[in-house]
Design a protein around this nucleic acid. Structure first.
Length: 541
DNA sequence: ATTAGGG
DNA sequence: CCCTAAT
């Protein structure tokens, strides 16, 4: 179709670094994530392009014909200019999964739920509003050539917090556009056993006129790569009243809370790049509208959110946040342990056109994807200042309910759009490797101390003694760490890597190791003697 | 569920 | 950290 021809969408902007790093061992598991997911998916940008194309249908047909050649030229120019592949395709190289990203997490104290398996993070109730509180006035494109809009940057702010109950209601009620869109952006309160709280989103699109090719948005280069933000604790419910919906810092937050929820703040939701064609005679407002609609399309269906931590894909929905290192560990804190701030990235949003809040249950999909979906009535209504809505991340799921069954994608549209963000079952999908969390010196100290007392054969006790509250440290971990500690203590300091462990501790390690090795040997002898004795006794009898 | 070790 | 045989 002509339309398709005219639609050129590219993606050569920033790309999230490949999640799977070089495998560390021969037993490496290739991240099946990408492999499994990308294939049958239409990337969000495809959809955007499609939507944009539909918008263009509104333009007089004759106009389209007239401008066809120009458009072609424009696209080619762009390709050339951007030094991209001849046919920029967002979905190539599986990059479409990385088209969006959100980062910034607010880490809050966690206790009770840390011990339980978590089903993941659920996000919903998304609102999109013009960050500048401006009402979008859109004019219909008239006629003329078709400029190209590319590099549309969208920034969204998502806030996930554990504020209790009805805050969102308040929020929704306070603003006008929300009253209208309330339903629109309302997602289901629950996805499986995950409870959904609120999420705030805002978005802004900016466009500038490209001298030759029409309108082109230019993303600030300084924004690339996306900034990394540190975690900070947040525990002030009043923040939910923050009109802006943003928490700028963690000051004044209660870090002592025994609350077991993690505060997650998502900021800077960016669409690296995509192309939209509009008539060159389009007005600024019409351009805005087109862009808005295209972007809106992302939210018109469902969004699939991938969670990444420290650049690694978190695939196991049942992994608690603490296990992934997101949680704040009070005990460790009390011990003076320092947990590295973790960065959480939520990425890979896919949308499905014309899929308003429908859901079906693909038996074997999206095991590890957080899904939030929403419905958009009219792009026109999407604007205004930022609203907030929180989402609770429920980690107290023990039901074993398969959250995968809650993924949302109308089967009917699956084939049509080929966008099914469905992950192949691929048998028992290998569990994701845990996030590496190097032992801090204080942890090592605690470990040494415990081992000195308990010996090297009672790792469960060691765990209970010194790492009872460190959910991410299993007794196997402790055993492994001891193993490496012993090794570290034996090699020359020059060969050691990572955070240097005080020699004093290493000395203690060697001492304890020697001592307990002896001990164990002695015990073994004892046992052997006892066995012999009993055997002899039996014989005698 | 733990332990113990190799990978 | 992972994987697992052996307890």
């Amino acid at each position: 179709m002509v339309l398709q021809k005219r639609l050129e969408y590219g993606f050569n902007g920033y790309q999230v670094p490949p999640t799977p790093r070089a495998p560390r061992s021969a037993r490496k598991r290739v991240s099946s994530w990408k492999r499994n997911e990308d294939h049958n998916r239409m990337c969000a940008f495809d959809l955007l392009a499609t939507v944009a194309g539909k918008l263009l249908l509104e333009v007089d047909d004759s106009v389209n014909k007239i401008s066809h050649e120009d458009v072609k030229t424009v696209n080619e120019s762009i390709i050339k200019t951007e030094n991209d592949s001849p046919k920029p395709n967002v979905c190539d190289q599986g990059s479409c999964n990385k088209s969006f990203f959100v980062s910034e997490i607010i880490k809050g104290p966690v206790t009770d739920t840390c011990s339980g398996p978590a089903s993941g993070i659920t996000v919903s109730d998304c609102k999109i509003e013009d960050i500048n509180n401006k009402q979008m006035k859109i004019d219909q494109p008239k006629n003329g050539k078709l400029p190209v809009v590319n590099n549309v940057d969208c920034n969204l702010k998502l806030v996930i917090r554990d504020d209790d109950d009805d805050d969102d209601e308040k929020c929704y009620g306070t603003t006008q556009p929300d009253a209208i869109n309330n339903k629109t952006f309302r997602a289901r309160p629950c996805i499986g056993d995950r409870r959904i709280r609120r999420l705030s989103a805002s978005k802004q699109c900016d466009v500038y006129r490209n001298k030759k090719h029409g309108y082109k948005y230019q993303r600030p280069l300084r924004d690339y790569p996306f900034k990394k933000r540190k975690l900070y604790q947040l525990d002030n419910p009043s923040n939910s009243d923050n009109k802006s919906g943003f928490i700028e810092d963690g000051s004044g937050l209660d870090a002592t809370s025994q609350d077991s929820h993690v505060k997650l703040k998502i900021k800077s939701f960016r669409v690296p790049e995509f192309f939209i064609e509009i008539p060159e005679t389009a007005t600024i407002s019409s351009l805005k509208r087109t862009v808005m609609e295209a972007v809106t399309a992302i939210f018109s269906g469902e969004l699939h959110v991938g969670v990444m931590l420290q650049g690694k894909r978190i695939r196991d929905d049942d992994k608690t946040l603490s296990q992934t290192g997101i949680c704040h560990d009070n005990k460790l804190d009390a011990l003076g342990f320092t947990l590295e701030p973790n960065e959480l990235q939520v990425s890979s949003f896919l949308c499905h056109e014309n899929q308003p809040l429908t859901r079906y249950s693909p038996p074997q999909t999206v095991a590890n994807e957080v899904v939030f979906q929403q419905q958009v009535d009219s792009p026109m209504t999407i604007s205004r200042n930022i609203k907030e809505s929180d989402h609770e991340m429920s980690m107290d799921d023990k039901s074993g309910v398969d959250s995968r069954a809650l993924v949302t994608v109308p089967a009917s549209n699956v084939g049509e759009l080929a966008v099914v963000p469905v992950r192949k079952p691929k048998g028992a999908e290998a569990a994701q490797r845990r996030i590496r969390r190097p032992f801090s010196v204080s942890e090592v100290e605690a470990l040494v101390e415990a081992v000195e007392k308990l010996g090297t054969g009672r790792w469960r006790d060691v765990k209970l003694r010194a790492f009872d509250d460190a959910n991410h440290r299993t007794y196997v971990d402790l055993k492994d760490k001891w193993k490496t500690l012993v090794h570290t203590a034996r090699i020359s300091p020059q060969q050691r890597r990572g955070e240097p462990v005080p020699q004093e501790l290493l000395d203690r390690v060697l001492i304890a190791h020697g001592y307990w090795s002896h001990h164990q040997a002695k015990n073994q002898l004892k046992l052997n003697h006892q066995q012999l004795d009993s055997t002899q006794i039996c014989r005698l009898l």
